[in-house]
């Protein structure tokens, strides 16, 4: 049930965002896509989430041709850098959204949804904030709500696009630890995009260092740090 990404390419007009990216991650692992802006990491993540279409290449996950499924059916929770919370809905409605839009036969009961929301809010350490609106929350709180919302659908893959980019250093560290804890608890395959190497190395099982649409090196953090394979990787890591 591993995640197999094979030679994925993507061009935006003339600009080659992805030039054949490949990696394999075991089920339940925490992968970080690390690199400078323009390296293609966000593009790859969005392709995994179904928000962009690749030009060529394939992805297999959970025995499925991943790229042949629309975003709606992939059950891949996505956390955006700017949270993308539904501003006109309360925190509870935001988190419950993924459950409420399910077709009738798969939709949990009203009480079950409420229970789940309370559990998730406790999980992301925001108990009692059900009736607040996103505009009344701090940046860190909003991101926790976004995470809870993505987790509510019991995703088989969790995708995070520089989720802590808009937050200050202290909040980043807290959220990073909480994220790892939640990942370990849920056992969900997680792909996490960042340009901050300290963050990537602190939280991931596997790191993919990307440049110009390619994965320059891929492996456990300790290995990558000890044996950088290209000049770019060693420069990027020492910066």
């Amino acid at each position: 049930m591993s995640l197999t990404v094979d030679s994925v390419t993507k061009k935006f007009g003339r600009f080659p965002a992805l030039n054949g990216a490949s990696f394999v991650a075991p089920q339940g692992s925490f992968v970080s896509l690390l690199g400078p802006s323009g390296s293609g990491k966000t593009t790859l993540l969005r392709i995994l989430g179904g928000l962009e279409f690749s030009d060529s290449g394939s992805v297999r996950f959970a025995d499925l041709n991943w790229l042949d499924m629309p975003a709606r059916t992939r059950n891949a929770g996505f956390v955006f850098q700017q949270y993308a919370l539904f501003k006109h809905m309360t925190v509870a409605d935001n988190i419950a959204f993924g459950l409420k839009v399910r077709p009738r036969n798969r939709r949990p009961s009203h009480t079950d949804i409420k229970k789940r929301v309370t559990e998730l809010l406790a999980l992301v350490q925001l108990p009692g904030l059900e009736d607040r609106y996103p505009s009344q929350l701090s940046g860190g709180q909003r991101q926790r709500v976004a995470l809870a919302r993505a987790l509510a659908i019991e995703p088989r893959m969790l995708l995070l696009d520089e989720p802590f980019g808009a937050l200050d250093a202290k909040v980043r560290k807290e959220l990073r630890t909480d994220l790892r804890r939640i990942h370990d608890h849920a056992g969900v395959t997680t792909v996490f995009v960042t340009h901050d190497q300290e963050e990537a190395f602190a939280v991931a099982d596997l790191v993919a260092v990307m440049k110009d649409g390619c994965i320059e090196q891929y492996g456990a953090p300790a290995d990558v740090r000890r044996n950088p394979r290209t000049a770019f990787v060693s420069e990027f890591l020492s910066a």
């Binding site: 989430g49 179904g50 975003a71 709606r72 992939r74 891949a76 929770g77 919370l85 539904f86």
Partner: peptide
Amino acid sequence: EVEEAAATLGATRLQTLAR
């Protein structure tokens, strides 16, 4: 982005537009 978020959470296009 909010429309993308709704889609990843399983909403159909009509649900996204309406809700």
